[in-house]
Design a protein around this nucleic acid. Structure first.
Lengths: 182, 182
DNA sequence: TCAAAAGTGTTTATAATACACCCATGG
DNA sequence: CCATGGGTGTATTATAAACACTTTTGA
């Protein structure tokens, strides 16, 4: 999945796994894994056609995604695909809340408004730039970058630039509930 | 997994899946699924022997578990098994924090002290009975049951009885972070 | 000098932990 | 009557949402 024009874009790929082939090897034949910012395994299920499928979620940065992949697959979605995409979206939404996973959807450097648009698309609801900035800064997920983005024709204060402190998945918000005593 | 004598007991079972057999069918040949309080799929991975394995976590109540299963499997743990059990334990710990999953480890009716012992065993750290009670009551996960447990020989106030309000997995604690606006 | 966009300061809300203290029982 | 285990009352702390207000720019 990836964010384009303010909405979540999905692309479903399928590969047959050769006998005795590692899962990651088959995955590598379907997509260019090194170009993805994040990959994780989801569920394994028997599809309607009787085949056993292990589903993976991959996240691509908008500035990295190859042109050929930028348009959504035009093929009609099967019931299987729709279900699997829904599972993947749910996982993405959940992890955005308690991890730094935004790094995998945002460009290298961004303004808070741009980041808010990414979160809006992925979460499916409105996000406050003010609070997003403070939550992610407080958690240490974001850091400031030198320079500012010039305002557009309509004016406005130039925006500060930020980047994610880490490019790998980290849990940034331990559960408040039932945490170990000091 | 299950809790016995204040500690987490694990039992690892393995089945071959027949060609075209649904995953749940193979699972049913390995364990008595209806007797388990909760079952969920974990990861799928290639084991050291080259076979593809889809791992499930099952939780059993101490009062339901068959006698033959009460003792831990005496077979020496392989590296694979140790890894898989660790994955399962991590999943269990996480879900205990933000769901009502305790229902699957506790007996039908219990005192808060008994429940605390269960959580202690599963979480691997100390748990305050006071706070456990309040958190689970506040979340609506627990409800009071008529009657009290008589104290032991050493005295003490008789304990109130509780049960879980639901016997099915529910997320009881939405993430405070990035929640949708009203 | 005004509208737009960005950013900060401060208040409010929520939920959990910590801890002091009261309750009920057996010996 | 006191030790033991159970339970409640009440801070304190942590985290984030809400919102008023200030800053910086283009036209």
């Amino acid at each position: 999945m990836s964010v384009h024009e303010g909405r979540l874009a999905t692309l479903v790929r399928r590969v047959e796994r050769e006998p005795r082939e590692p899962l990651e090897a088959a995955l590598g034949r379907a997509v260019d894994v090194p170009s993805l910012a994040h990959v994780e395994q989801l569920e394994t299920r028997v599809l309607r056609d009787g085949t056993l499928a292990t589903v993976y979620l991959g996240l691509a940065r908008p500035d990295v995604l190859a042109g050929s992949d930028r348009r959504r697959a035009a093929t009609r979605s099967t019931a299987d695909k729709r279900e699997l995409v829904a599972v993947a979206q749910a996982r993405l939404r959940a992890k955005l809340s308690y991890t730094n996973l935004g790094f995998a959807l945002a460009p290298e450097v961004f303004t808070i408004s741009e980041l808010r648009d990414v979160y809006r698309a992925a979460l499916g609801h409105d996000v406050s730039a003010t609070n997003l900035q403070r939550v992610l800064l407080r958690r240490g997920a974001l850091e400031r970058v030198e320079g500012r983005r010039a305002p557009g024709r309509t004016g406005g204060r130039p925006a500060s630039l930020f980047r994610f402190a880490s490019q790998h998945l980290e849990v940034t918000d331990e559960f408040a509930a039932l945490r170990p005593p000091r």
